[in-house]
């Protein structure tokens, strides 16, 4: 076996040996391996977020679509598809870690952008069948962003603004709490915390808060 095959085998063994964790704040009900969820709230704009996750052993893979929803504008959205594992576990206490490539799009009066980045998060906390509470520590980094400047910006601002691919246009740190309560196959989730740039400069608004619901099947 080469090193990559060994690593894959180890992951597979862990997946079989460790009870399933969930992207939710509580454990999934017996027999459920998938879930869908919707969250509404404020996180870098008023957003609506829809997620799908499929549990595979102790981890899961997920896809998440985020749409700023103050006024429906399909030119602004984010999509991430990644995975989450339970890195450490002792009873109902767990440390979960997630990682996902992210794409963010926007189109505003100044520029339109397609940003490619990654998002990682650590979520230590308590997770039982009925309720859960975890710390959310997240970092999202825009690695490469394509910017196109508007005619308005060129006319009344900077005519020499350069269109093209930019490296490392932004990064956001997130720290907060996520709690959930399960009612059968449904879970209600509340999350709130603070946001800053990666260099700890304030963003507006400097906090986030979402209310969500998921259904496991």
């Amino acid at each position: 076996m080469n090193r990559q095959t060994s690593f894959a085998s180890l992951l597979a063994a862990l997946a079989i040996a460790v009870p399933a964790t969930a992207q939710e704040a509580t454990n999934l009900p017996e027999g459920a391996r998938q879930s869908v969820s919707v969250e509404l709230g404020l996180q870098s704009a008023l957003v609506t977020r829809a997620s799908y996750s499929r549990h595979i052993g102790s981890g899961l893979v997920y896809g998440r679509f985020t749409l700023p929803s103050a006024s429906l504008d399909l030119r602004d959205f984010a999509f991430e598809a990644g995975g989450q594992i339970t890195a450490l576990e002792s009873g109902s206490w767990k440390l979960q870690a997630s990682f996902a490539p992210v794409v963010r799009l926007t189109d505003n009066d100044l520029f339109s952008a397609t940003a490619l980045g990654v998002r990682g998060a650590l979520m230590p906390g308590y997770q039982s069948d009925r309720w859960g509470l975890m710390l959310e520590l997240g970092y999202e980094k825009m690695i490469a962003t394509h910017l196109n400047h508007s005619a308005l910006y060129r006319n009344v601002g900077y005519s020499g603004a350069k269109d093209g691919w930019y490296s490392s246009t932004g990064g956001t740190l997130q720290a907060g709490l996520r709690g959930g309560y399960r009612l059968g196959r449904a879970e209600l989730t509340l999350a709130a915390g603070v946001l800053t740039t990666e260099r700890l400069n304030p963003v507006q608004p400097p906090f986030y808060g979402t209310l969500g619901s998921s259904y496991a099947f």
Binding site: S44, P68, D76, R104, T106, G171, T172, E198, R199
Partner: peptide, 9 residues
């Protein structure tokens, strides 16, 4: 929303 793409750093 733009701040999640371009940070004021």
């Amino acid at each position: 929303w733009a701040q999640s793409i371009v940070s004021p750093d």
